[in-house]
């Protein structure tokens, strides 16, 4: 008797809070926890649904396309992050040091972010056409270089996709770096001015160390994004990943194995590939938490708040 009263009290006291959380809690179980578990189980099953142990992983790692997918993804990730962070940082640094028109530049740099990757790819396919008369090849001719095959060349396709992605996403990093630079105390640079430090020394010894956190944040989000690379390569090469499989990334591989209408589908192998991708991302996330320190990580932040 007393217990029911107590229980009624519990629901009266807290019930509304739980009700208000019902949708996201159910949603998270349905669209996050459950799919993850299904995926993990699926990776140990064959297409008929019976348990086959590590066979799918075995198939995955003997598939010649899989190592290519990993290499392509990592290679494009390294080029992409290696290009975009220094370029974006320099642009943001210059923006911060000039007196006029900062907002106009920021707006222009951010604009490609709202242009969908499909439209972007259409334009870049033209500009970087393998044809000798395409704009970029004419440009190469002008400065006396031989023509390139760009998107259609086995040795240049990945780099060309990265140029396109750089064009589209550089503004995003510029905005973040600029916001970080704004929080940097002006006195530091002024003191360096008085000491007669040149621009390069100010950049390297004062600005970069002060921007460590923003740099790490952009680096990590770009790296995770690079592991999941799909839209830009899909927009250029669809699911075929041509030329020479250079544009098959891990996500394109998974997509081909789960949704393709043209290639051999195998859900078990697709799930195994998803699990491997998940492990990759977990590793990066753990490194992120180590580097940025416990105090700044998501979970500890909320834990600290919740303990009040």
């Amino acid at each position: 008797m007393q217990k029911t009263v107590k229980r009624q009290g519990f629901f009266k006291k807290y019930g509304e809070w739980y009700l208000m959380l019902a949708i996201p809690v159910i949603g998270s179980i349905m669209f996050n926890i459950y799919p993850l578990i299904v995926n993990a189980f699926q990776s140990f099953k064959n297409t008929a649904g019976s348990w086959v142990g590590l066979v799918n992983y075995n198939i995955l790692f003997t598939d010649v396309l899989w190592p290519k997918a990993i290499i392509n993804t990592l290679y494009m990730g390294v080029i992409g992050v290696g290009l975009s962070i220094p370029i974006a940082f320099l642009l943001a640094y210059m923006l911060n040091r000039v007196p006029f028109a900062k907002n106009a530049f920021k707006t222009i740099y951010l604009f490609p972010m709202i242009v969908s990757i499909v439209a972007v790819s259409m334009v870049f396919k033209f500009i970087f056409n393998a044809d000798a008369n395409s704009p970029m090849n004419l440009f190469l001719q002008m400065i006396g270089l031989p023509k390139s095959d760009w998107f259609s060349g086995v040795s240049t396709s990945r780099e060309t996709v990265m140029i396109m992605t750089l064009w589209k996403s550089v503004g995003h990093a510029v905005i973040l770096f600029f916001a970080g630079l704004q929080t940097m105390p002006v006195e530091l640079l002024e003191a360096a001015d008085i000491d007669g430090a040149n621009e390069w020394k100010k950049l390297w010894y004062i600005t970069v160390p002060n921007m460590k956190n923003t740099l790490i944040f952009v680096f990590i989000t770009n790296s995770i994004g690079a592991l999941k690379r799909f839209a830009d390569v899909y927009a250029i090469a669809s699911e075929y990943g041509q030329p020479g499989d250079t544009l098959v990334t891990i996500m394109i591989y998974i997509y081909r194995k789960s949704f393709s209408t043209l290639f051999y589908k195998d859900l078990g192998v697709a799930s195994a590939a998803s699990i491997i991708l998940f492990l990759f991302i977990i590793v990066i996330t753990v490194i992120e938490m180590r580097v940025t320190g416990e105090s700044e990580s998501l979970i500890s932040n909320s834990r600290k708040r919740g303990a009040r």
Binding site: S28, N32, V38, N39, K228, M251, S274, L277, F278, I299
Partner: peptide, 19 residues
């Protein structure tokens, strides 16, 4: 509960596509 909900940020949508 907060951890349960935020966990979906750690698991990218892409790998849960098929399920």
């Amino acid at each position: 509960l907060l951890l349960l909900i935020l966990s979906s940020m750690m698991v990218p949508f892409e790998i849960k596509l098929m399920p």
